[in-house]
Amino acid sequence: MGLAVRLVMRLFEQAWGLIAIFAFWQIWVMANHYNSIVIVSPLAVLRDMALNPMIYLLPSLWTLAFSLGGLAAGMSIGLLLAITAWRWRLFAGTIGPTALLISSTPVVCLIPLLARIFGYESRTEFVTVAVMSFFPCFVFATAGLRALPPMSRELFHVLAASRSRQLLSLALPAAIPSLSIALRVGAATSVLVTMVAEYLMQTGGLGNMFALTSQAFQTERAWGASLAAMMLSAILYTIGGAVELKVRERFR
């Protein structure tokens, strides 16, 4: 009995905000007697998701695959650039301004541009997410490669370590905590950016599903697609956070 009460309390402590939003939404819809084409109640959305799980599953997996693939590619490029900048200091200065320009360009603006260059195809989703995630990874990795344990640089110097040994045994492990932050931040956003790209280009996935169903006035399903994307994004953020915590324990 006591345990059950405590569990409910814990849940409420975490979720009171969400419960309030859902309740407000439900009451608002009921009070205004909106037509279901314009706006739907949360219960209607959840019912549609529960009754047709397969319809949601495939687009979700599609979106997930493109966000994670693009994220992996973008982060690899960012890490490689950071290592190059670590090895040759001058390189850091020469790519810095270009990288800053690309990164400060709001990524959604690049979607039309990239769509023109790479075509209205799924690969453009991939490129968009890669472009979005490479710069934060580059910044975090650059800082991480230099956040060495105290005196360790001197130690490696006295032991006459080669540059590649310094990179492998010292700088790269030291950069892992920073990289895990980049992963957490990137994972959650990548789903949302993929969804915008899919919405604009109608190439598939949850964004495409949202576009098609809202054009067909299937409002429950359109909102269901958004809810699915939210859940994906939240799950990735939570996983990323857990990874970051584990990494921080291991590397500090």
Binding site: E13, Q14, L192
Partner: peptide, 21 residues
């Protein structure tokens, strides 16, 4: 303080709502 966990979760969730939706 007691409001913090719920607010944290709310903030993350609201930020996760796709802009297109």
């Amino acid at each position: 303080r007691p409001l913090r966990p719920g607010l944290d979760r709310l903030a993350v969730t609201i930020n996760a709502i796709p802009a297109v939706a």
